[in-house]
């Protein structure tokens, strides 16, 4: 299945690795902050809704 990358195997794989890793990090950070803010907002809205 794996295509023959010849002598450039390391090069190509490291380029893919680095890129996908960076994208993944960006994605995880984005989603984590999104979820955190969403939850915090829900708390605040709940509290404010109860008080006023």
């Amino acid at each position: 299945m794996m295509p023959d990358l010849g002598k450039y195997g390391d090069t190509v794989l490291s380029a893919y690795g680095v890129s996908l890793l960076l994208l993944l990090v960006l994605l995880v950070l984005t989603l984590r902050r999104g979820a955190k803010v969403r939850a915090a907002l829900r708390d605040v809205e709940h509290r404010v809704g109860r008080n006023g």
């Binding site: 984005t30 902050r33 999104g34 803010v37 969403r38 907002l41 605040v44």
Partner: peptide, 15 residues
């Protein structure tokens, strides 16, 4: 998605 997050953060601090 991130703009949505920023909006929520902003709304939270406004609240």
């Amino acid at each position: 998605y991130r703009t949505g997050t920023e909006i929520r953060a902003r709304r939270m601090s406004a609240l």
